[in-house]
Design a protein around this nucleic acid. Structure first.
Length: 892
RNA sequence: GGGCGCUUAGCUCAGCGGGAGAGCGCUUCCCUUACAAGGAAGAUGUCACAGGUUCAAAUCCUGUAGCGCCCA
């Protein structure tokens, strides 16, 4: 071996790993080196992840911790595996959320946004963004996220805004965006329309009030209707009964007199009225209920809006109600009806009430004119893309959720009565004519053509739903509509990593808009990961006080520990219940690795430049190299299949159980021996394996691995951040594995018996072997050093006969005896052997049952049958030897 | 009401056709010069219940119960 051994740092490793200092230093070095940057000129194949842009108002929570850890694992892995990796970062302007934050700040100074006016208010929001908008980016850096930061985008950047305007204009011209007057979900707190998805149904204990509406011209006759929202009766324009309902047939086409209001309202026949519920008659308020709206359309009913934007009763209601809040109006209506003697009864009633997910107050169905996207048309190719597998969901069953929603998709209301966001590029002429254009000049041109002269235009004051711009994210961030090299190279992305909660909000919209404007799906895979819950399985929330703050966890246990914990718990299809002691456990894993590295350092393990893992001769070294190759392949497969728990778990087991517990223990006697050749090979092998571990673990635990890599410099000038993933083909060593497995079993069995017989842990005792094949004797001698050391034996000597009073163990074809005449309890030993025989008998019994089954022999895979036969033979041999051991005891 | 998922060791969960695993916790022993944030050994399961398919079921199918989530 050459002497060009690379020297590590001069000072030895500290006794403990100081995460805080190391994390800050390495992150800064990585970022300064430009290692996170994608290279559009690279000849490597691209690998793209578009980061779901966190809200500009956001700060890092555990859900972010999970999603960005997994994305970073993928990005780091593929970067190492030779891809030109782009992790495109960004932030979302989050219309409602951000506007609310700034409005709340203004409210402390008793100012409303209206006091400031639109422009000044928006300036304020930008000011706020400049001050507080970057927090999440720096928090992501603490997690170790290696996004391509110089490419950071904001949804209100000029480039992205240009894309938004173009999409709006194009869809409008294609007839896929239109204005319509229909019921929307109106949030009276925020005074804006919101989409169906922003509405949450909450179960509320309310009442069902039964009102009697007098029938016009038939004194004494009434129709009873029931309602959970009495105030809406002020806007009633009909009562519906079922056309087949005998009770009311004569009333169809007649009128009721609406109490309080005095309006005559039509009695219509409509199947919406269910004869089975209540009286069978139902009041119809077309302007304030989605079902009633449909009934109203069918019967051409008048639509009377009785609410204003703030949810107060407006001028369309009787004077004494005008200006009342909707809930006050409710009380007043009930009181008046009761006074009129028309309140039949009141029943307590639990029902679903729609709440705005941001404003937190009940939403009102409200008749307004809004902009809509024809989602059904855009959804068709987006459905097909998943049906044909051009985009695949992982786990696959989420595609079902996607289909369910996409096949029943409703028009998407995209206008919001807010100020913070993309203002809709539509201008109105004096007569209300609409001109949709990229900018005011173009709109003026259109108007000039339309009117034949210049006319004053007014821009639509509304802004777009935040998800409208988010839906363009996979291509708007890459420069679209310009034909940039980035757009050409990095679209479509490889995978979108996200939680199931935004499949509708975001994934679906990206699919629709991406396919429509780019002609291809925005990503090949959609990996849907779990939700992070607390250890009891409850959703983390401020109000429950069960939040685990990722930054606190990082401070306490290190970023590596948190990342590893989240990755190893990220099994597909199940939520993560996170408890701090799990993080502690994986922090201990980092410590274990650190100490294994210290051991290597203390034993002068270094990697010669010409070290060839295929050429080692020691069995123990061939074995560990083969195992390293195996785990490297499994880890890569796990990551590529999004089975992060398998990939990380495999590493955990390999590093701790295989490398530390066994390999490092095996090599101690070698390193302390006189055999210079074996020592050199073993030092090199240990260094090589440690180096592979650092590489394989790097995507999961980037900081500690980079720190150790920097310290050892096994390979000069090769920071892990840009290192290649281990390519370890042709290194399996099945013979070495079989041999070492035998060593492990022998040591384990001896240890077990020692513990059971209460042999003092420190005591070294002799061991005899009987009936061993010559090959076994050779192995015993080859591995004597560590067998003696780890089983605490003075030696293993061949014997033709077991001495009396020896504890006997059967491993393979041989029987091993520990002469413990003075300590052995004959009764206990007989029991122990009897138990072992019983266990073997039970297993043999099970196998015989199978082997005597003709169906099994005829139909099972021949390999399975063969394995079963071999197993039986092995067990039978073991059983015989155990029986012989018992017989020997009888002589005592 | 419709859909999806879950039920495996005390706890948290892997496994998803060939005879049950991990981590944590627990018990015993050990400060063996890499590591006590450690080492060694150990105990614990009608794999929710009931049927069915199969030579073979924790694993596939059907139903039941309980829990959770999504959509009306």
């Amino acid at each position: 071996m050459s002497n060009s051994i690379s020297a590590g740092s001069a000072a030895p490793l500290d006794k403990t790993f100081e995460s805080a200092e190391v994390e800050a230093r390495h992150y800064a070095l990585w970022e300064q080196s430009g290692a996170f940057a994608a290279d559009p000129n690279s000849d490597k194949p691209p690998y793209t992840i578009i980061m779901p842009p966190p809200n500009v108002t956001g700060s890092l929570h555990m859900g972010h911790g999970l999603t960005f850890t997994l994305q970073d694992v993928l990005i780091r892995y593929y970067r190492m595996a030779g891809r030109d990796a782009l992790w495109q970062p960004g932030q979302d302007h989050a219309g409602i959320a951000t506007q609310m934050v700034v409005e709340r700040q203004l409210a402390e100074k008793k100012i409303t946004r209206h006091d400031l006016g639109r422009e000044a208010f928006i300036d304020k929001v930008w000011e706020w963004k400049a001050e507080s908008g970057g927090t999440i980016s720096s928090q992501l850096r603490r997690l170790g996220a290696t996004a391509d930061w110089p490419r950071d985008r904001f949804t209100l950047d000029e480039g992205v805004s240009k894309a938004v305007r173009k999409v709006f204009v194009d869809l409008y011209r294609e007839g896929l965006i239109y204005k319509d007057s229909r019921l929307v979900n109106w949030d009276p707190a925020l005074e804006t329309a919101i989409s169906d998805l922003e509405v949450e149904q909450q179960e509320v204990k309310g009442n069902l009030w039964y009102f009697q509406y007098p029938v016009d011209g038939q004194p004494g006759r009434v129709l009873t209707v029931a309602t959970t929202r009495p105030e809406t009766m002020l806007g009633d324009t009909a009562v519906a009964v079922h056309p087949e309902d005998e009770r009311y047939r004569d009333l169809i086409g007649k009128h009721c007199v609406l109490p309080i209001v005095g309006r005559k309202i039509l009695i219509v026949a409509d199947e919406y009225a269910d004869p089975e519920t209540g009286s069978g008659a139902v009041k119809i308020t077309p302007a304030h209920d989605f079902n009633d709206f449909e009934v109203g359309r069918r019967h051409n009913l008048e639509m009377i809006n009785v609410l204003d934007r703030k949810g107060r009763i407006n001028e369309n209601a009787p004077v004494e109600y005008q200006g009342l809040d909707r809930f006050e109006a409710r009380r007043k209506v009930v009181a008046s009806i009761e006074e009129l003697g028309l309140l039949e009864k009141v029943e307590p009633h639990t029902h679903q009430v729609p709440y705005g997910d941001r404003g937190g107050v009940p939403i009102e169905p409200y008749l307004t004119e809004q902009w809509y996207v024809d989602a059904a048309t855009l959804a068709k190719p987006a459905i097909e893309a998943v049906e044909t597998g051009r985009t695949k969901f992982v786990p696959e069953n989420w595609s079902k959720t996607y289909f369910e929603w996409m096949r029943n998709i409703q028009p998407w209301c995209i206008s919001r009565q807010l100020w913070w966001g993309h203002q809709i590029p539509a201008w109105y002429g004096p007569d209300g004519e609409i001109f949709v254009a990229d900018n005011e000049d173009e709109a003026a041109d259109l108007a000039r053509k339309h009117y034949g002269e210049d006319k004053p235009l007014e821009r639509d004051p509304d802004v777009l739903d935040t998800w409208f711009s988010s839906g363009l994210w996979p291509f708007s961030t890459l420069g679209w509509p310009d034909e940039t090299p980035e757009l050409k190279r990095y679209y479509p992305g490889d995978v979108l990593v996200t939680g199931f909660d935004i499949i509708f909000f975001w994934v679906a919209r990206m699919m629709m808009l991406g396919i429509h404007f780019m002609g291809d799906v925005p990503f090949r895979h959609v990996y849907i990961h779990a939700l992070v819950r607390d250890e009891k399985g409850q959703k983390m929330s401020k109000s429950k006080g069960n939040i685990i703050d990722p930054l606190e966890v990082i401070d306490e246990y290190s970023a590596d520990s948190l990342r590893f914990t989240l990755a190893v718990m990220a099994a597909q299809g199940r939520d993560i219940k996170l408890a701090k002691n799990r993080v502690e456990g994986y922090r201990n894993f980092g410590t274990k690795l650190w100490n294994a590295a210290r051991f290597c350092e203390m034993n002068q393990c270094a990697l010669p430049a010409d070290f060839d893992p295929a050429k080692v001769s020691q069995t123990v070294n061939r074995w560990i190299i083969g195992e390293t190759a195996r785990v490297a392949a499994e880890t890569a497969q796990g990551i590529e299949a999004y089975k992060f728990n398998e990939a990380a778990g495999g590493q955990y087991q390999f590093v701790w159980n295989t490398f530390c517990d066994w390999y490092l223990e095996f090599i101690k006697p070698i390193l302390n021996s006189e055999d210079a050749g074996a020592i050199a090979e073993t030092r090199a092998t240990a260094a090589w394996v440690l180096d592979q571990i650092l590489l394989m673990l790097h995507p999961f635990m980037p900081f500690i691995t980079e720190e150790l890599n920097e310290h050892f410099r096994f390979v000069p000038d090769r920071p892990l951040i840009t290192a290649p993933w281990p390519a370890l083909n042709g290194l399996d060593a099945t013979d070495a594995k079989a041999e070492m497995d035998w060593v492990v079993r022998l040591i384990t069995d001896i240890r077990a018996v020692r513990a059971e017989m209460n042999v003092p842990a420190g005591a070294q005792i002799p061991c005899l072997v009987q009936g061993a094949a010559s090959e076994t004797l050779a192995q015993l001698s080859r591995h004597a050093g560590y067998i003696h050391r780890l089983a605490r034996l003075t030696g293993v000597d061949a014997a033709t006969e077991m001495p009396k009073g020896a504890v006997q163990i059967v491993v393979g074809e041989a029987t091993y005896g520990l002469p413990l005449a003075d300590v052995i309890d004959i009764g206990a030993e007989r029991d122990r052997l009897a138990k072992a025989i019983e266990k073997a008998d039970k297993e043999i019994g099970g196998i015989d049952k199978r082997l005597s089954n003709p169906g099994f022999l005829a139909k099972a895979d021949p390999a399975v049958v063969e394995d079963t036969r071999e197993k039986r033979q092995e067990l039978a041999g073991q059983r015989d030897k155990l029986t012989a051991a018992v017989a020997r005891l009888a002589d005592l």
